[in-house]
C-alpha cells in the first residue's frame, strides 16, 4: 500500500530488506523523481541512535561521486522514525561485465577520502540500468582511517568477501581489504558463483589456500605469526587459475586483486590504471553508442564473445608457455 511519508514523499513497495532497515521505492511529490527510501527499524533506546546509521549518513553526506550512491535527504517524523532518501537505482549486478571499472573508481574515491568501506558485497553494489552506472552503497560498516592504519575490528565484511589478513587475525589492516572483496565480486560476476565459499572461517581459509596456495614467510612475510594461522595445513600450491577459468580477464584479477599478502595487493588506483581497464574504457564508449539501438541482448552476446575470445587467446598463451617449457 502506498502511503504518504510527509508532505514531500510517498512511500511505495518494499524493494529490499537489510539488517538495519527496509528499503522502499518512493516518490518525491514535488519533483516527481523516483527515489529509494531506507526506513530504519525502530532504534533500541538503550543504545541511542545506532552507530551504523550515524556513520552511513555522515559519510555519504560528504561524498559526491558518480559511483557512490547519492544521499538526497534525511527526514524524521514526530514518532521518532527516521528515513534516508537515496537516488533510486535498479538492483542487479550480474548483467554487466565492465562494471569493474566503475566499482574500482568508486572504491578509489573512498580510499582517497580516507574511507574504508569494509563490507563490499554484491548486494551493496547497485546499478542504474538506464545509464549503465554502478553505485557503491551501504556505508554502515565504513569508517574513516588515519595514518598509519591501526588495528581495526576484525568482525567486518561478510565472510565470503573477507580478506585473508582479517581471517588470520592480523592486528593491522588497510584499504587492501576492500580490493580483496572487489576481486571476489569480480570472480563471482564471471563464474556466477563464489570463488571461495567456506561455511566456517577455517573452511573458508582452507578454500582460499587450496586455490591461491598456502601462504608462507617467503610470499607473505609475517604470515605464520598471525594469531589464526592454522598449524599443520597441507602445503597447497597455487592453482593455475587461468586453467580453471580460462580467462585472461580473471587471471589479472586473481593475480593482483586476490594477492594474499595485503602489502603486495594492487591498490584500487593502480588496478584502474591497468591495461585491461584502459581497453575496457574504449569498449565501454562503443557500447554506449550501441545501447541506443539495441539494449541488453546485444550486450550479452558481445560479452559472451569477449569471454570466449579471452579464453581462446589465453589457452593459446598457455599452450605456447607449455611448449616453450617442455
Amino acid at each position: 500500500m502506498e502511503k504518504l511519508l510527509n508532505w514531500q514523499y510517498k512511500l511505495g513497495k518494499v524493494i529490499g530488506i537489510g539488517a538495519y532497515g527496509i528499503v522502499h521505492r518512493g516518490l518525491n511529490l514535488e519533483t516527481n523523481q523516483i527515489v529509494a527510501i531506507k526506513r530504519f527499524y525502530t532504534f533500541d533506546c538503550k543504545n541511542g541512535v545506532p552507530y551504523t546509521t550515524i556513520r552511513e549518513i555522515s559519510m555519504l553526506i560528504e561524498m559526491y561521486h558518480i559511483n557512490i550512491v547519492k544521499l538526497l535527504d534525511v527526514i524524521s517524523n514526530t514518532k521518532n522514525e527516521w528515513y534516508i532518501i537515496f537516488e533510486y537505482l535498479d538492483l542487479d549486478l550480474e548483467k554487466y561485465m565492465y562494471i569493474m571499472h566503475q566499482i574500482l573508481s568508486g572504491v578509489m574515491y573512498c580510499h582517497k577520502h580516507r574511507i574504508m568501506h569494509q563490507d563490499l558485497t554484491p548486494d551493496n553494489l547497485l546499478i542504474d540500468l538506464n545509464a549503465s552506472v554502478v553505485k557503491i552503497a551501504d556505508f554502515g560498516m565504513a569508517r574513516a582511517f588515519d595514518f598509519p592504519l591501526r588495528a581495526y575490528s576484525p568482525e567486518v565484511v561478510t565472510i565470503w568477501y573477507k580478506a585473508p589478513e582479517i581471517l588470520l587475525g592480523s592486528p593491522v589492516y588497510s584499504t587492501a581489504i576492500d580490493v580483496w572483496s572487489v576481486g571476489c565480486i569480480f570472480a563471482k560476476m564471471l563464474m556466477r558463483q563464489n570463488l571461495f565459499a567456506g561455511a566456517s572461517k577455517n573452511e573458508h581459509l582452507r578454500k582460499i589456500f587450496s586455490i591461491m596456495g598456502t601462504p608462507n614467510e617467503r610470499t607473505w612475510p609475517g604470515v605464520t605469526s598471525l594469531p589464526y594461522y592454522p598449524a599443520g595445513l597441507p602445503e597447497y600450491y597455487p592453482e593455475v587459475i587461468s586453467i580453471i577459468f580460462a580467462s585472461i580477464f580473471f587471471y589479472f584479477a586473481s593475480q593482483e586483486m586476490l594477492c594474499m599478502n595485503p602489502a603486495r595487493r594492487i591498490s584500487a588506483r593502480r588496478a584502474l590504471g591497468h591495461a585491461y581497464f584502459k581497453k575496457k574504457k574504449r569498449k565501454e564508449k562503443k557500447e554506449k553508442k550501441m545501447t541506443i539501438l539495441d539494449p541488453i541482448e546485444k550486450k550479452k552476446k558481445k560479452m559472451m564473445m569477449m569471454m570466449i575470445l579471452d579464453s581462446v587467446s589465453f589457452t593459446f598463451v598457455v599452450v605456447v608457455v607449455m611448449l616453450t617449457d617442455y
Partner: peptide, 17 residues
C-alpha cells in the same frame, strides 16, 4: 539521551566525520 543525540545530529546536519 537518544532525543538529545538526534537533536545534535540534526543541528550539525549529520556532518559528523
Amino acid at each position: 539521551i537518544q532525543r538529545m543525540e538526534l537533536l545534535v545530529l540534526n543541528t550539525l546536519e549529520w556532518r559528523m566525520s
